[in-house]
Amino acid sequence: MFLQPSKRRFLKACAAGSVALALAGCGEQNTTPSFHGSDISGSGLGADLNMTDHTGQTRTLADFNGKALLVFFGFTHCPDVCPTAMAQLAQTMQVLGEEAQNVQVAMISVDPERDTPERLAQYVKAFHPDFIGLTGTPEQLKQTAGSFRAFYGKVEQGDGDYSMDHSASFYLFDKEGNARVLIRPDAGPQQIADDVMVLL
């Protein structure tokens, strides 16, 4: 079929525009980090972290600048979920190898009534010597957990004791203290390490 010169020029321009748009789309995809977990960049989660470590020092996000930060909410009397999660994070550090020195893992206790700084330190360091535990007053916990949009609650047991329900996801922050990834509790150490490496 014969096309007039003006129509040929129009079709060529359209084709060139399509190619340019396709290349631009590829460029945008290449600049967007790909995570196994949910991308929460820009959410501001955890911005009001304000807890006490095992030395009695108040900790905020600014104290961890320069390292990727992995945060987990738990408690030392937890029978299964917390030990499993802490073991996952310890294995993640092994997967990271030398890069593990650029990562800080912190467990925030949802049970400040029983989790003193000393008890919490003993608990987390049983999994890895560089892990830290954060506890504090009920008011500090309420502020911090609210900032993470993490839930927790006391569950009374028949024997007069109690347990704690709590969020079980991992929160990953970049080296500037920005919340970047929400990682599922069932994520494997390799998947967690992959997401950390994107931010290092």
Score class of each variant (00 low, 15 high):
P5C: 09
F10C: 03
F10P: 00
S18F: 14
A20L: 15
A24S: 09
G25T: 03
C26N: 08
T32M: 13
P33D: 13
D39I: 09
D39C: 11
S41P: 03
L49W: 05
T52F: 04
D53K: 06
G56M: 10
G56F: 06
G56L: 06
R59A: 11
N65I: 03
N65M: 07
N65E: 13
G66H: 00
K67W: 02
L69P: 03
F75S: 00
F75V: 01
H77W: 02
H77S: 12
C78H: 01
C82Y: 03
M86H: 12
M93L: 11
Q94I: 14
L96S: 06
E98F: 00
Q101D: 12
Q104P: 01
Q104N: 11
S109I: 12
R114A: 12
D115S: 11
R119Y: 09
Q122R: 15
K125Q: 12
A126M: 13
P129S: 11
P129M: 02
D130I: 04
T135Q: 12
G136R: 05
T144R: 09
A145G: 10
S147Y: 09
S147R: 11
F151R: 13
G153E: 06
G153K: 06
V155W: 00
Q157K: 12
M164E: 00
M164T: 00
D165C: 01
A168W: 02
S169V: 12
V181G: 02
P189L: 11
Q190K: 14
Q191L: 14
V198L: 01
L199A: 01
